[in-house]
Design a protein around this nucleic acid. Structure first.
Ligand SMILES: [Zn+2]
Ligand SMILES: [Zn+2]
Ligand SMILES: [Zn+2]
Ligand SMILES: [Zn+2]
Lengths: 132, 132
DNA sequence: CTTATAAATGTTATATTATTACATAGCGTT
DNA sequence: AACGCTATGTAATAATATAACATTTATAAG
């Protein structure tokens, strides 16, 4: 069961927008879309985004400076994320593969560093784009 | 043997700077540092960075918007990269672990997508920072 | 050597992404 | 009420990155 975070007004507006869109959204595109709801300034958007990332409701696609709703109910905190990104149509989806996440969560090398978090982005061509 | 790319003048200036620094550098910090060598505009820096990334001499640390010289002689093209990042001191190093790269290069899920590239960033505390 | 072509450069302006600083409001606990 | 904490509002600005256009240099072919 996913813990319900009580989102604040701005957080809820922004999460709903991203969630409904189903694809990565950029901060200023979000801003444009919520201006009619009274959110007028970039900082209001970035603050909500920061919080939503922190509690794992959304993730940042680092290579795209964009934010997508979490598609993986088991991932309550953004500490182990993996995405597949089509370099042609820019479609992004979250990968939830338990073997992969187990492998990466347990990964350690000889640096003596204990990793508490990772983010992985795979790139390629999606089915549609491949067949064009 | 690493193929020698004949770097152009600007590319060489910028690569040498990043390589000598041994740590991730940001574009505008690079710009500041090469102004005495006649590189005056952001675009000159970004063009060189783009090329250097393309040929694998440097990599972009996406979560930091910074660029680091490749520390892995076997990685001539930036198509399979992994980094360890200390969230306290921001030290970054490139991970070259053949098991990891094999695992990720061969990774496939049920999306039907063939991945040609990946970037992985691990986060944690480095030895030094852990012991503080 | 000449011509063609691609790659790189120079320059100005501008777009996009993100944060600083400061003031105010709401909410739960004691 | 007094406190601490989270969230909000607003203005200004910092940091990151690209568009558009003109020119020069390197490379290769004829
Ligand atoms: Zn998720
Ligand atoms: Zn596609
Ligand atoms: Zn490398
Ligand atoms: Zn450290």
């Amino acid at each position: 069961m996913q813990k319900e975070h009580n989102l604040s007004r701005n957080q809820k507006i922004i999460f709903d927008l991203i969630d409904k869109s189903g694809e990565p959204m950029k901060a200023y595109s979000i801003l444009f879309n919520v201006q009619k709801k009274g959110i007028k300034a970039p900082l209001q958007v970035y603050r909500a985004l920061d919080k939503l990332v922190e509690i794992g409701k959304i993730h940042k696609i680092e290579s795209r400076n964009a934010f997508i709703a979490c598609q993986n109910s088991s991932c309550q905190i953004s500490k182990a994320t993996a995405f597949s990104i089509c370099e042609s149509c820019e479609n992004v989806s979250e990968i939830s593969n338990s073997k992969l996440s187990k492998y990466l969560s347990n990964f350690s090398d000889d640096s003596g560093m204990k990793y508490s978090k990772y983010n992985l982005e795979f790139f390629g061509l999606c089915k549609k784009c491949k067949s064009k």
